[in-house]
Amino acid sequence: MKEKVSTQRIVFLDLIKVIAIFLMVANHCVDNVTPMERAEPWYNLWGSVYNSFTRPAIPLFVMVTGILLLPTRMAMGKFYKKKISRLVTPFLVWSVLYNLFPWFTGVMGCEPSSINLFFKWAEPSQTFSDALKNICMIPFNFSAFAVQMWYVYMLIGIYLYLPIFSAWVEKSDKKSQRIFLGIWMVSLFVPYLRNFLTQNLWGECSWNEFGLFYYFAGFSGYLLLGYHLVNYPLQFSKMKKYLLALVAFAIGYGVTMIGFKETTAVPGQSEEMVELFFTFCSPNVALMTFAIFIVCQNATFSNAKLNGFLIKFSICTFGIWMCHYFFVGPIYLLVRSLDAPVLLKVFIENILVLLLSFVFVLIVRSTGKWGKIIMG
């Protein structure tokens, strides 16, 4: 997540970014659980309970982006040069490293199976030609060795769109923004309507994929939601805000967890159905995201040391995003031998991966200008 230079730091945004990166790493730690452990009868229950908590991670990052970058008053070309270049450089460096890694294991004399210690679900190949093929595909999509990079493609798209969206946001009033958010909220139901009602929804068909709510759908709603909640905060007591957040999170989490659990309990489900209730742009995930945001926005920050830690950790979140997947597999190998439930082992893995990635990013950033560029 890129930050706009400001003389006044919004501390609660640092808290949101730390929570979001924790949730994101948690999601990838659950992904690394072995097929044998996934076959255990109770995996579907605890996997659903734990993994459902992670879904607000990406929307929270996008909301922070909206707060920090809306409205932008830079010329479009200058904005692209300054902001997108800060994303592209670390993205390319780390994408190349991830895709070269299988080839490196072969150079070092490791067995092809060693690749799956780091990337559990990737097809192991140690040939340079396959690595080069994946690298050549970087302009078009991520590989199985750089799965987390999907987010950067999306984020670059948001940055390309942001100066255009920003012009409207700057001129819009509270009512206009709420109308946009209202239409966006309707669009959040599209994944469910498309699956349970009709695949060709509101004008979508074999020759048209851009339906009625297409231009209001997606992550742009989270961009505006973050901006809107900061500029037009809820006008009632903190206790009522917390109560609202509790209810919103309970409903959103309940739908996410139960929906995912029931869907994945059916053998042979398609990947699309498995991910349906985990969709980031869905009403249940939006409710969870809104709840976490409201709690953080109204939190009190009076401890200088805690504030300093949050700021330092927040600055490292993009770098953690880039590098953490190299630590997920080895750390899980370390904790899997513990005499503890898999859920506890995954939580311990989550903490260790996050802390190790944080320390690694700090070390690299401390090397100077290029260290900071590589880590974003």
Score class of each variant (00 low, 15 high):
69 L>T: 04
59 P>V: 13
315 I>P: 01
216 F>V: 15
20 A>P: 13
109 G>W: 09
146 A>N: 08
368 G>Y: 09
206 S>F: 03
255 V>P: 05
181 L>F: 09
160 L>G: 07
105 T>A: 08
180 F>M: 11
189 F>T: 13
119 F>A: 09
140 F>T: 08
39 A>I: 11
351 I>S: 04
315 I>C: 03
340 A>Q: 14
153 Y>Q: 11
96 V>G: 03
330 P>S: 12
336 R>Q: 15
7 T>L: 14
108 M>G: 13
337 S>I: 12
295 V>Q: 01
214 Y>A: 06
297 Q>V: 05
150 W>T: 02
68 L>Q: 15
114 S>E: 02
295 V>Y: 00
349 E>N: 15
215 Y>N: 11
82 K>D: 00
367 T>E: 10
224 L>M: 15
128 F>P: 02
191 P>I: 01
105 T>W: 07
340 A>R: 12
118 F>P: 02
120 K>I: 00
198 T>I: 10
111 E>A: 13
99 N>P: 02
29 C>W: 03
158 I>L: 10
318 F>I: 00
29 C>P: 05
349 E>A: 11
261 K>D: 10
66 G>E: 05
67 I>V: 14
165 F>I: 13
58 I>Y: 03
374 I>P: 00
369 K>P: 02
331 I>L: 04
94 W>S: 09
267 P>Y: 01
294 I>M: 07
202 W>S: 03
221 G>R: 06
138 I>V: 11
354 L>P: 04
6 S>A: 10
219 F>Y: 14
76 M>C: 15
168 W>R: 07
126 Q>D: 03
327 F>H: 07
283 P>M: 08
194 R>A: 10
312 K>T: 06
232 Y>H: 13
324 H>I: 05
171 K>R: 15
290 F>G: 10
372 K>C: 14
354 L>M: 12
359 V>F: 14
181 L>T: 07
190 V>K: 10
173 D>T: 13
330 P>M: 12
277 F>S: 01
84 I>G: 01
244 L>T: 10
74 M>R: 05
189 F>D: 04
120 K>Q: 01
156 I>Y: 09
40 E>V: 14
324 H>E: 05
282 S>K: 01
166 S>A: 13
100 L>C: 05
98 Y>I: 01
243 L>H: 06
12 F>M: 04
7 T>Q: 15
58 I>G: 01
110 C>L: 08
265 A>P: 01
16 I>P: 03
127 T>G: 02
199 Q>A: 14
77 G>K: 14
104 F>Y: 14
307 N>D: 12
251 I>S: 12
5 V>E: 07
19 I>G: 09
211 G>Q: 08
105 T>F: 11
186 V>A: 15
103 W>V: 01
6 S>F: 06
57 A>E: 06
231 N>D: 12
266 V>R: 09
196 F>A: 11
353 V>I: 13
242 Y>T: 04
127 T>P: 00
